Computed example of a mutant assay.
Amino acid sequence: MQSVGLFFGSFNPIHIGHLALANYMHEFEGLSEIWFVVSPLNPFKKADDLLDSEQRIEMVRLATEEQKTYRAEDIELSLPIPSYTIDTLNALTKRYPEKKFSIIMGADNIIRFNKWKSAEEIISNYNILIYPRPGYHLDAKQLPNNCKLSNAPLVEIASSDIRQWIKEGKSTPYLVPERVFEYIKEHKLYI
């Protein structure tokens, strides 16, 4: 079975931190592919400053199209909103029964994982790879069996910072992939 890491997010916009984490998970955690699952609306986030889903999926496509093992996944755009991970997992598993899916998740999310819809079902049926986040310390011994604390590098870039800097008129060409930077400029996003 091919092992696929599902990297869920708003990707508003996708940035080099997302890509660095994906690269680490692919190279060091044994994942054959990384699918960037663009969420139309996370149940834990507000829609403020959230670009249209189609624009965000296009930026993910631009950022990943040259990497054969990366994929922009838009399945959540066809599912009911808000997006619940269990519904996405069920839909993907049904559509791709030959794939073994793992979830790539930040340490900030695993701390509140018990609040997720069908958390027990997710943890029983899927592996979870947890990457570090600033301000969150986890003890690997206290995590459920299907969870692994990854040694991925700590990435301190946030999409919210990039949006704010663009709004302030700052240039961010090295924080987002070049084609994404051009797309943001061309469509006058986040200003």
Rank of each mutant, 00 (worst) to 15 (best):
153 P>A: 09
153 P>I: 10
118 S>D: 08
135 G>W: 00
186 E>C: 11
143 L>F: 03
156 E>Y: 09
118 S>T: 01
175 L>C: 10
132 P>N: 03
122 I>C: 11
144 P>E: 10
180 V>W: 07
187 H>W: 10
162 I>H: 09
129 L>D: 02
176 V>E: 10
111 I>G: 00
176 V>N: 12
164 Q>F: 14
114 N>E: 10
137 H>D: 09
106 G>E: 01
163 R>F: 15
127 N>R: 14
132 P>M: 03
108 D>W: 02
185 K>P: 13
128 I>G: 02
141 K>P: 00
175 L>A: 03
177 P>N: 04
136 Y>E: 01
137 H>I: 08
147 C>D: 08
105 M>P: 00
166 I>E: 02
131 Y>Q: 03
112 R>W: 12
116 W>A: 11
174 Y>T: 08
111 I>F: 00
138 L>H: 00
103 I>N: 02
110 I>G: 01
145 N>Y: 13
109 N>R: 13
138 L>G: 00
137 H>A: 14
180 V>K: 06
160 S>Q: 13
113 F>P: 10
142 Q>E: 10
159 S>H: 04
167 K>T: 08
174 Y>G: 01
164 Q>C: 12
140 A>Y: 05
156 E>G: 06
113 F>E: 08
168 E>Y: 05
123 I>Q: 12
111 I>L: 13
149 L>Q: 06
131 Y>C: 01
175 L>P: 04
127 N>W: 06
183 Y>P: 01
152 A>E: 08
151 N>H: 15
129 L>K: 11
157 I>D: 12
152 A>H: 11
158 A>H: 15
173 P>H: 11
129 L>W: 05
181 F>K: 08
105 M>E: 04
173 P>W: 15
159 S>L: 12
116 W>T: 13
117 K>S: 06
110 I>C: 03
170 K>A: 04
145 N>A: 13
113 F>S: 09
124 S>C: 15
124 S>P: 02
154 L>I: 07
174 Y>V: 05
135 G>Q: 00
152 A>S: 13
